[in-house]
Design a binder for these strands. Structure first.
Ligand SMILES: Cc1cc2nc3c(=O)[nH]c(=O)nc-3n(C[C@H](O)[C@H](O)[C@H](O)COP(=O)(O)OP(=O)(O)OC[C@H]3O[C@@H](n4cnc5c(N)ncnc54)[C@H](O)[C@@H]3O)c2cc1C
Length: 542
DNA sequence: CATCAGTTGTTACG
DNA sequence: CGTAACAACTGATG
């Protein structure tokens, strides 16, 4: 029990006690041993140092206040049980892999800003290493930890291994302003040169911590089975699983070479894309490894697809959105976000709940949300359909609300990517053709005319004839009775008339865009320099 | 200032 | 099944 932290504050360290060769690698994302430059640095430090007594402490800090317990079914849980399970899988897998090298993972509970300083002192750490993370919460937290470490004379070593390129380098290369189009961004990456090769973890044993550092809390957390029980095991977490899934995804080189994202199906019964996203989000898979494996396949298939539709193109979208998220103030919200259209969304919790809990009365939408809640992954175009429906298409609710629901359930929930895509779908940034609206009835029919996807995720409709399954309220009463699903009783009536609402919303978008265009032109008249000191942008009501 | 391209819209009509 | 009409946006480019 010796090494446990009691989170009551930190004790003053005795600086002289630092052991240079002692390294603490702090896992947050980047939950892998391959292509993990910060971890490599820590390993090298403790095996090579002239102080032969160096040890590597691999740590993950579980901050329960950030993601509540999975049993808590309360409305405001931040992470679904499936997300918990995924994280738990990741940590167990890391622990297993580290044990094969004679080390182990240590799990501590508490607020990292308190826990890390305590452990730096207690374990007499000489160097702290971790992967850079650009979400605002992480940046704030890391700044506090860095400050403490510096004061104590602990070296801090940080690497941008979450992305293909170092985001600070892209930021500098673009003069601080990442282009606001995908094409422009592609040119920037072309200037930035080739994607670097991944780095391998040094061979050989890693000198780990003493067994007595393993606390009861740690054991309870890492050994628990409670996450495994109630969630389907479609996508087990962890680096091992990630590398396995990479191999299966690449096993058909023709499929890889011909991949065109817009042609993949949102409602197939098995995923039509790789589902590597959860592994990339948690860092179980290195994007550089994925990138170079694709490049190898492209080299052997000269007629391969190209960005934006190719798989390389998908990774570039990911890169693009991370870069924009990193360099845009207030990126996670509408107010004060310079690249976000200011749109007077409504706030109606009944509509929002109906959307989240599959009660909109549109089977395609409700089935997608059911898959999201149960399995934690939905296809990109399925995300389009439900995001459009919630925002500019039908319900006129804020994309911020939608993003936080997604964040709760998505195994691949990733701050910059989630926000960026919600901005895109709501026509708030990146994409402005708001007159292109997905139909909650027609869109799914193209790839699943029989409605098998709906039958799978909304069993109450499983006997509805295909003719009516996308709009069951149009089925004659007898048909509903025979199908065992009476609309208004067993399954809700539509909460909104899509034909009417989408037309109205299109007009509201037009007005919101006009107001913004006028305000910007009058602003720039007032002060020639629009860059400095933007006035706070106020929410407007129509 | 005009033109063009933009991963992934829908519906009606021939 | 392919194509035009629908209503008409933006950022980049010249
Ligand atoms: C409203 C909305 C919210 C989203 N939120 C997230 C999120 O929180 N986390 C997330 O990873 N993706 C998010 N996406 C993007 C995209 O839907 C998923 O990345 C993709 O569906 C993951 O499936 P895949 O791994 O099979 O993708 P593949 O088609 O196999 O693509 C390979 C990889 O490229 C990356 N990628 C693909 N598309 C995108 C994209 N549009 N934006 C960014 N990266 C992309 C992913 O890392 C993905 O794993 C969101 C999309 C929408 C419309």
């Amino acid at each position: 029990m010796g090494g446990m932290v009691d989170s009551t504050g930190f004790c003053a360290p005795s600086t002289g006690n630092i052991v240079k060769g002692n390294a603490l690698h702090w896992f947050r994302h980047g939950l892998r041993l391959h292509d993990n430059p910060a971890l490599n640095h820590a390993v090298c430090r403790c095996v090579e140092g002239s102080s032969a007594s160096g040890r590597l402490f691999c740590l993950f800090v579980v901050d329960r206040s950030r993601f509540e317990l999975p049993r808590d079914e309360a409305h405001n849980v931040r992470m679904s049980a499936a997300r918990h399970r995924f994280l738990h899988d990741c940590l167990r897998d890391l622990d297993d892999s580290l044990r094969q090298r004679g080390s182990r993972l240590i799990v501590a509970l508490g607020d990292p800003v308190k826990v890390i300083p305590q452990l730096l002192t207690e374990w007499r750490i000489g160097v702290l290493t971790y992967e850079k993370d650009v979400a605002p919460y992480s940046m704030e937290r890391d700044a506090l930890v860095n400050k403490f470490a510096m004061e104590q004379g602990v070296e801090v070593y940080v690497q941008h291994s979450k992305t293909l390129y170092d985001l600070d380098m892209l930021k500098d290369k673009s003069g601080g302003r990442i282009p606001l189009t995908y094409n422009g961004f592609q040119k920037l990456t072309a200037q930035a040169g080739r994607v670097a090769k991944p780095v391998a973890l040094p061979e050989g044993p890693i000198p780990g911590p003493d067994e007595n550092l393993i606390s009861e809390e740690h054991k309870q957390w890492i050994d628990t089975n409670e996450y495994v029980a109630n969630t389907p095991l479609l996508f087990p977490g962890g680096e091992t699983e990630a590398l396995k899934r990479l191999e299966t995804s690449l096993s058909d080189p023709k499929w890889v070479a011909n991949f065109e994202k817009p042609k993949t199906s949102p409602n197939s019964l098995d995923p039509s894309t790789t589902v590597l996203s959860p592994y990339l989000a948690m860092g179980c898979l290195s994007p550089k490894v994925f990138w170079h494996r694709l490049a190898d396949i492209y080299a052997r298939h000269p007629k391969h697809s190209v960005p934006p539709v190719s798989l390389h193109g998908q990774l570039l979208f990911r890169e693009y959105f991370h870069a924009v998220g990193y360099t845009t103030d207030n990126f996670g919200r509408m107010e004060g976000n310079a690249i976000c259209k200011q749109i007077p969304w409504d706030r109606n919790d009944e509509l929002l709940d109906a959307w989240e809990y599959s009660r909109t009365g549109y089977p395609f939408i409700d089935a997608i949300m059911a898959q999201l809640r149960m399995e934690g992954w939905i296809h990109h175009l399925a995300r389009h359909a439900v995001a459009c429906f919630l925002t500019r298409g039908d319900l006129w609710q804020s994309w911020e609300q939608g993003a936080s629901v997604f964040e709760k359930y998505l195994l691949d929930g990733d701050w910059s990517l989630n926000i960026s895509n919600w901005l895109w779908l709501s026509s708030s940034a990146f994409f402005y053709q708001y007159f292109r609206v997905y139909s909650p009835i027609s869109f799914g029919k193209k790839t699943d005319p029989n409605g098998d996807y709906i039958r799978k995720y909304l069993p109450v409709l499983k006997n509805m004839p295909h003719k009516y399954i996308y709009e069951p309220w149009t089925a004659p009463k007898e048909v509903q009775m025979r199908a065992g699903c009476v609309i208004g009783k067993d399954y809700p009536m539509p909460i909104v008339d899509h034909a009417v609402a989408s037309k109205q919303n299109m007009q509201k978008m037009k007005v919101a865009y006009e107001i913004q265009a006028n305000r910007i032109s009058s602003n720039s008249k007032k002060k020639g320099n629009s860059k400095s000191g933007d006035p706070p942008i106020k929410r407007r009501r129509l």
